[in-house]
């Protein structure tokens, strides 16, 4: 909902998000994520299917599972996992109002089409910069499936977590555009 510009002019996105928030975003836009986001990956998706253990409408879902926190830390290293592995579960969640997914790598055409249909976007955060990303997480709580260990569902409080719009709700894909621009063969 909250959307304001920081000094660097990156948009700050905060859940719950509306269709209007999503419509204004285009591939290549730099955004900052603040507020509540949920972290879930393979095994949790398999378990919750169409009914995630959190309010899905307007929410932000980060495909991630951190390393264990050391004493005094809020969270260990955290970063995106490959989003396409969650493709089989994503359409149902978009239908229910999931607005932003965050991960790394490609999405299937089916998911891209559903993002267009239900007005949602996909953000990319670089993989393997997870010690740095941890600085943008203020709080982490396990909300479901603690038995999954690192794959438990987490509620995170983020602050200015930097991300790039990779697929927008108009069906545009930054991976295709970026690659074409630098292709030299």
């Amino acid at each position: 909902m909250t959307k304001k510009k920081t000094k660097k002019t990156s948009l700050v996105l905060k859940a719950p998000l509306t269709e209007k928030d999503i419509k204004s975003l285009n591939i290549g836009d730099r955004v900052l994520i603040s507020g509540t986001i949920y972290a879930a990956r393979d095994s949790a998706h398999k378990l919750f299917g169409k009914n995630p253990p959190f309010e899905i409408k307007g929410s932000i879902l980060f495909y991630a599972s951190p390393t264990p926190a050391k004493k005094g830390q809020v969270i260990g290293s955290i970063g995106p996992t490959t989003a396409s592995r969650m493709d089989p579960y994503t359409v149902d969640l978009l239908k229910k109002g999931l607005k932003i997914t965050i991960g790394k790598g490609l999405r299937s055409q089916v998911v891209k089409d559903a993002m267009k249909k239900y007005q949602a976007i996909y953000l990319v955060v670089p993989g393997g910069i997870s010690a740095g990303i941890a600085k943008h997480i203020l709080k982490s709580t396990i909300i479901a499936y603690p038995e999954l260990g690192p794959e438990a569902v987490l509620e995170l409080e983020a602050t200015n977590l930097p991300a790039i719009v990779a697929i927008d709700c108009k069906g545009k894909d930054l991976f295709e555009v970026g690659k074409k621009k630098y292709q030299t063969k």
Binding site: S65, P66, T67, S77, T81, P126, G128, I129, G178
Partner: peptide, 30 residues
């Protein structure tokens, strides 16, 4: 040559510094 590419490479190099300094894993997938 790409500006996003440069930025990502810088983030990767910087992450290595943070990880080394704070003895944190470079990536969550250890």
């Amino acid at each position: 040559e790409s500006s996003s590419g440069q930025e990502i490479l810088k983030q990767i190099i910087n992450n290595a510094k943070v990880a080394w300094r704070e003895k944190m894993p470079l990536c969550q997938d250890t």
